[in-house]
């Protein structure tokens, strides 16, 4: 039971987890992440890997759109850049897969820098349109640069190998993807404890006074684009090792909207928001599918009848969030935390 929080140093006050319950919950969460592969069946492990990939990419988009205020609809295209880089390296170079993932991230970051250039002049919807244009240009490149991308038939990857073992099982991939994603999320959380993260938020909130404080708009916006697409590139690389086929249609434009929806549903400009949003967007359609499976004994052709309903329910859930919880799932968590903060002494 807690009656207050007292800290003795600035370091303690600036820690990521400041209270004991927070640290306990985090330890529990880490434990369950470690235990999961031994408890879950293959199907759920498949979903867990997909969630890890999507969390990494959504966290990246959240840095750009949620924290810096630059709306981007190019996240899937940046992922594709990472996926193609990783695919090409895996097939043509003997480099270890972790290095390939890093290279995927850096290639995507470079592309992100170029795509980010218009952001100095255009904002909001206009920037969103510019990133859509970039997505379609990249798609064109993937289809036509056949010597590297193998055109429409795409690249088929050999599995990643770690210490001589090929990573083919979902449980093996899980143990690679989850730590990588955890590191990336930790990096993002750290970023917003320092001058760089604060500069991003400053640009989002009021760019004129950011300039007066000595924040260079061009540099900072481009930096945000680069980090965000680096995250997308690494996520795309993981995606390539996961599905082992990369084609121009692997990362459709809808996938970019998926990430934008994820950070809106989860909570823009919060680390937790991108995580919750990506989990929600990945798992809820699956859960709805289970609902239909349960109904099948009662309604023999439930699947045929309700499949369209599933999409509608999913869409309604998103709209519901926009209306009733515009700050997203993260805000619900915060509210619950506040309620229990000094419970039962204060409500």
């Amino acid at each position: 039971m807690q009656i207050g929080t007292a800290k003795h140093s600035y370091r303690a006050d600036e820690a990521l987890l400041t209270t004991r319950p927070q640290r306990l919950w985090m330890a529990l969460f880490a434990l369950s992440l470690c235990a999961a592969p031994f408890l879950l069946d293959n199907y759920w492990l498949y979903l867990a890997c997909l969630v890890a990939i999507n969390v990494a990419s959504a966290t990246g988009l959240n840095i750009l759109t949620g924290y810096t205020g630059l709306v981007s609809l190019g996240q899937a295209a940046f992922m594709a850049v990472g996926a193609y880089t990783v695919g090409w390296m895996q097939l043509n170079l003997p480099t270890p897969f972790l290095l390939n993932l890093l290279a995927g991230g850096f290639t995507a970051a470079l592309v992100g820098l170029v795509v980010g250039l218009p952001s100095l002049r255009v904002k909001g919807l206009y920037l969103a349109i510019a990133t859509i244009a970039a997505s379609f240009i990249l798609h064109f490149v993937f289809v036509n640069w056949e010597s590297v991308t193998n055109g429409n038939s795409g690249l088929t990857l050999t599995p990643a190998t770690f210490l001589g073992t090929p990573l083919t099982d979902y449980s093996q991939l899980y143990f690679v993807f989850v730590p990588i994603t955890a590191l990336m999320v930790l990096g993002a959380a750290n970023l917003f404890r320092t001058r760089i993260g604060r500069a991003f938020i400053a640009i989002r909130d009021r760019d004129i006074s950011a300039e007066v404080l000595g924040i260079s708009l061009l540099r900072t916006k481009l930096m945000s684009f680069a980090i965000s697409s680096f995250y997308a590139g690494v996520a795309g690389g993981m995606w390539a090792y996961f599905f082992r086929v990369v084609t121009p249609e692997s990362f459709p434009f809808v996938y970019s909207i998926f990430f934008l929806a994820a950070i809106i549903v989860g909570g823009m400009g919060t680390i937790l928001g991108a995580i919750l949003g990506a989990v929600f967007m990945t798992l809820v359609p699956e859960l709805l599918r289970f609902g239909i499976d349960w109904l099948t004994p009662v309604l023999p052709n439930a699947a045929a009848m309700l499949s369209p309903v599933r999409t509608i329910v999913f869409g309604l859930l998103i709209v519901g969030f926009l209306i009733f919880e515009p700050k997203g799932l993260a805000e619900i968590v915060q509210r619950t935390r506040r309620y229990f903060h000094l419970w039962p002494f204060k409500k």
């Binding site: 970023l191 604060r198 950011a210 404080l213 924040i215």
Partner: peptide, 26 residues
């Protein structure tokens, strides 16, 4: 910056005089 706390707003004042780079920040 309305979305930030008082402390973070004030800290932003020092931005131009600080040196932390991206990698160190991450």
């Amino acid at each position: 910056f309305r979305g930030m706390t008082v402390l973070d707003n004030i800290k932003l004042g020092r931005h131009a005089h600080m040196k932390t780079n991206l990698l160190q920040a991450l």
